[in-house]
């Protein structure tokens, strides 16, 4: 907070102080029941769940060989996940994992798009809890697949790449285990969180800055506010691209981890 405030207040040399956006802006508690606190992202999550279930059920109900208009659009998304992500990354027996990949993709996509939805404009994926929840599902899934495929000891043996000097095996195993069990889920969650958080923060900087400039006394600042709002608008459009891309990357990496665990030999 102090940094962004310093940067923005350095740009705006006025008597009254401009406070930039901070991570605290993403924390919006609504009701406190003591043991649990209902926040705005939780309500958005409920909306996301309802929306996702509605899209899936409306798109696939009465799925016919000759698609209706709604089914056609749904099929575009489904085909993208099925052929573009799951089949490419997992391999021949990808159909088992289709519900996981497709559900995750839709969930992350809708959560991301909530940042650009009018009247909501609050991405649940910019709260670390949601990427962690999504990653937890992937984490359980790919380790379950790996242990089931290779056996308990076989999975650890599978982690060490072939063609290694025996003296190096324990060291490399340590590294590989850290990668498999810690860094992969960490980067998966943090990538989504960081992108959504930073993107929303950027828009907030432009919009709050523009607002501050607009309501400032100096008429020159009012003029500058147009530029700030314009940049905010451009960033908003850019963000929609990033949101879709991050959902794709999340589903891609989830499929890739499952595919690695599913693979026979590396």
């Amino acid at each position: 907070m102090s940094l962004s405030a310093a940067l923005t207040s350095g740009a705006v040399v006025t008597a009254d102080e401009f406070t930039g956006p901070s991570p605290a802006d993403f924390y919006q508690p609504m009701w406190d029941f003591g043991w649990i606190e209902i926040t705005r992202p939780m309500l958005v999550l409920v909306l996301v769940t309802i929306l996702a279930c509605w899209i899936m059920l409306a798109g696939s109900r009465n799925a016919s060989v000759v698609p209706s208009k709604g089914q056609f659009y749904f099929e575009q998304i489904y085909d993208f996940v099925r052929g573009g992500i799951a089949r490419d990354m997992i391999g021949p027996n990808y159909k088992k994992y289709l519900p996981l990949i497709f559900g995750l993709f839709l969930f992350v996509l809708l959560s991301n798009l909530m940042a650009s939805t009018p009247f909501v404009q609050n991405p649940p994926s910019a709260r670390i809890a949601v990427p962690i929840a999504a990653t937890a599902v992937v984490y359980i899934a790919y380790h379950y697949v790996g242990f089931k495929k290779h056996g308990f000891l076989g999975y650890f043996k599978f982690m060490v790449p072939a063609g290694l000097a025996p003296a190096m095996v324990p060291v490399i195993f340590l590294l590989e285990a850290a990668t498999f069990f810690l860094i992969r889920p960490l980067t998966l969650a943090l990538r989504l969180f960081g992108n959504m958080f930073a993107g929303h923060m950027l828009i907030l900087v432009f919009v709050l800055g523009g607002e501050f400039l607009l309501f400032h006394d100096n008429w020159l600042f009012k003029l500058f506010s147009v530029g700030a709002f314009g940049m905010g608008f451009l960033m908003q459009i850019f963000e929609i691209l990033i949101q879709a891309l991050q959902a794709y990357v999340f589903a891609l990496l989830a499929a890739s981890y499952i595919g690695t665990a599913e693979a026979d030999e590396h």
Binding site: Y27, I36, E37, I38, T39, P41, M42, L45, V46, P124, R127, I128, A129, V130, I132, A133, A134
Partner: peptide, 8 residues
């Protein structure tokens, strides 16, 4: 956030 994690 605990509640958000559960909800997620």
């Amino acid at each position: 956030h605990t509640g958000e994690l559960i909800f997620g």
